[in-house]
């Protein structure tokens, strides 16, 4: 649907192997994925299928064994510029910094002190944490901590936001709230977003395309476009159809009848 927009992230024949105990272990095998500017992509797959490793390679915490990852026309390097932001499964906030200070930590060093306040204020408004600027992380609930974490990742205005199961540790109600909010942020901030999740509903609710991974070594099994307009009704026929489709990928028909497990 975003075919006319320019390419944001190109994952080009990427493989990853780890050396464990002298033996090579295939983690990811020949991953190809072109992501356009402003697209919302989800990767779903069983745990251990290498989806988090892929995010770590995109942001430069892990090396690529084969292939290459190209961002905005340049290969992943350790340049000064923060082009990609990342939020992890745990909020990973600095407990000695207040909410405002944690968000400020995400601002690149070259930004003038005078401009920092406005940036922080904007992010606090965006993630709905007004009034909590001076609180410490251990005074916040899990959902609020995760919002601070997302604000910290967004404050440097990266082109791409990577989300590594950021709502995985939250309770069901908070998770649905956060999904609505991330959708809101995506609309307002117009970022390319790449979400790793094992929650199929979450993927359908949020994404333009869903990339289904198979396990060990991780390979792309299917890419499913979701065209219906947002906000999506989780009980609509379209939603249920896609959910069934993805379920089939994980559970062979002989294992389970998906009808009973939805």
């Amino acid at each position: 649907m975003n075919a006319e927009k320019e390419l944001s992230l190109n994952i080009d024949h990427v493989s990853k192997r780890f050396l464990i105990d002298g033996r090579e272990l295939n983690i990811l095998d020949d991953i190809n994925l072109e992501i356009r500017q402003g697209e919302f992509i989800s990767i779903v797959g069983a745990s251990g299928c290498g989806k988090s490793t892929l995010l770590k390679m995109i942001i430069g915490l892990e090396n690529v064994t084969d292939g290459r990852i190209v961002i905005d026309g340049g290969e992943v390097t350790s340049s000064e510029e923060v082009k990609i932001g990342m939020a992890f499964q745990e909020a990973r906030l600095y407990p000695w910094l207040t909410v405002a200070e944690n968000i400020e930590f995400g601002i690149p060093d070259h930004v003038a002190v005078a401009d920092r306040k406005a940036l922080i204020k904007k992010q606090i408004g965006l993630v709905g944490l007004k009034g909590f600027e001076k609180a410490y992380p251990n005074q916040l609930s899990g959902g609020m901590q995760q919002r601070v974490s997302i604000a910290r990742a967004l404050v440097s205005d990266p082109d791409i936001l990577l989300l590594d199961e950021p709502f995985g540790a939250l309770d069901a109600l908070t998770r649905i709230n956060m999904q609505n909010e991330i959708l809101d942020i995506w609309k307002k901030a117009k970022k390319t977003m790449l979400l790793v999740t094992h929650d199929i509903d979450e993927a359908i609710f949020l994404s333009d395309r869903i990339v289904v991974f198979s396990g060990r070594p991780g390979q792309i099994r299917q890419i499913i476009p979701v065209d219906s307009s947002r906000p999506r009704d989780r009980s609509s026929a379209e939603f249920v159809r896609i959910r069934k489709n993805i379920f089939k990928e994980f559970f062979a028909e002989t294992d389970l009848d998906p009808e009973y497990y939805i």
């Binding site: 942001i59 430069g60 915490l61 923060v82 990609i84 745990e90 600095y94 910290r152 440097s156």
Partner: peptide, 11 residues
């Protein structure tokens, strides 16, 4: 994990 965050933010 806290060090990783700082690396991601290119500190």
């Amino acid at each position: 994990k806290l060090l990783e965050v700082a690396k991601v933010l290119k500190k």
